[in-house]
């Protein structure tokens, strides 16, 4: 396998979220990873943004549809007369 193409801090920063989101192609991901392995400031930025995204997920996923709504949907949607085929 060839060594990944060298990228600079700016390119790494531009692709950081895509890297964290798992949205890069394997080649592009390897380039970012190689840069992060070598570059302490970018690695530090990665840790910070990763912590931020984890925090966002943790703070926003607790909400569930209320029981009264679930009940209404069971009663009104699933037994909807207008959609009787």
């Amino acid at each position: 396998m060839n060594a990944p193409r060298k990228i600079d801090c700016q390119e790494a920063a531009e692709r950081l979220y895509e890297y964290l989101d798992g949205e890069l192609t394997p080649d592009s991901e390897a380039e970012v990873r190689a840069h992060l392995d070598d570059c302490a400031p970018c690695f530090k930025l990665l840790g910070f943004e990763d912590a931020y995204l984890s925090f966002l997920r943790a703070r926003t996923r607790a909400h569930q549809a209320p029981e009264h709504l679930k009940k209404k949907i069971f009663e009104q949607v699933l037994f909807d007369q207008d959609s009787a085929s």
Binding site: R61, A65, P66, K72
Partner: peptide, 30 residues
């Protein structure tokens, strides 16, 4: 349903409207 509700709540901005929005969405989907 929970996922649809969470997105509805952030789009609509209040619970009463989110309820209506989810109900209408699920009815249309059905």
């Amino acid at each position: 349903l929970d996922a649809v509700y969470r997105v509805a709540l952030r789009l609509a901005g209040d619970e009463a409207q989110a309820d209506d929005l989810v109900q209408e969405t699920m009815l249309k989907a059905y």
